[in-house]
Amino acid sequence: MGDPFAGLDTSWAKAAERRAVRANRFRRLGGLLRRRRRGGGSRGRRRLLLIGGIAAAAVVASFGLSFLLKRGPFDGTPAEDYARGVAGIGLPAAAAVEGFTAGQVDDALRQVRAALVAARLDPRMLTGHDPAALVALLAPQQRESVSGWFGDPRQHGFATFVDPAARLDADEEPRVRGTVTYNADTADGRPTLHVLTNFVWVYAFAGDGLAAPYAAVHDQLRWDFPAGQGMWLGTGRWYVTHMDCDALRHGLLSPMRQAKIKAGIQFKDPRDYLDAGHTMDVTNTCDG
Rank of each mutant, 00 (worst) to 15 (best):
V112H: 03
R37A: 14
D152C: 00
A159N: 04
Q104V: 02
F158C: 04
T127I: 12
V112E: 11
L33Y: 08
G72M: 02
K70T: 13
H129F: 04
R38N: 09
G41V: 14
P123N: 02
V135A: 06
F161V: 07
L32K: 00
G44Y: 03
V112F: 01
P140S: 03
L68S: 04
L138D: 01
P78D: 03
A159C: 03
V86I: 06
D122E: 10
L29S: 13
G41L: 13
G157K: 00
G85W: 10
G88K: 00
R22S: 15
L49D: 01
F67G: 08
V86C: 00
A133T: 14
L33D: 15
R45D: 15
A57M: 09
H156V: 07
L32I: 13
R84C: 03
V86M: 01
F74W: 05
R35N: 10
G44R: 14
T160W: 00
R38T: 15
G53E: 05
G103I: 09
A20S: 10
R154M: 15
R37H: 08
G103Y: 05
L48P: 02
L48M: 06
A79N: 03
F67V: 03
L50K: 11
R19A: 08
V105F: 05
R71G: 05
H129V: 08
T77Y: 09
F150Y: 11
F150W: 05
A55M: 10
F67N: 06
L33N: 12
A20V: 11
P73K: 00
I89R: 00
D75M: 03
R28P: 07
R154L: 14
S66Q: 09
F100A: 01
G53L: 12
L69K: 04
A159E: 07
D106N: 13
A87F: 03
V60F: 11
T160G: 05
R18G: 08
P140G: 03
G90K: 11
V146S: 01
A55V: 15
L49V: 15
L68E: 08
G148M: 07
A133L: 11
R45A: 15
H156T: 14
G88C: 05
P131Y: 00
F150T: 09
G128D: 06
R143V: 12
A114N: 11
A87N: 07
P153K: 05
F26G: 12
R113K: 15
G31C: 08
A58R: 14
D106A: 13
E80A: 08
L138C: 01
R38S: 15
R71C: 01
D107A: 15
G85K: 04
L33H: 12
P78S: 06
P92A: 10
R84W: 01
R45V: 13
R22A: 15
M125S: 06
D122G: 02
G40E: 12
A159M: 13
A118S: 14
V162T: 11
T77F: 04
I54S: 11
V97K: 01
L116W: 02
R36D: 14
V117N: 06
R19T: 12
P78Q: 06
P153T: 09
P73A: 04
A136F: 04
L50P: 00
A79E: 03
A58M: 08
S42G: 14
G85F: 12
G30D: 14
K70R: 10
G128Y: 01
F26V: 11
V105W: 04
P140D: 08
R47W: 05
G30Q: 06
L138R: 00
H156E: 12
F158G: 05
A61W: 02
G41Q: 12
G44P: 04
R71W: 01
V86N: 03
G85T: 07
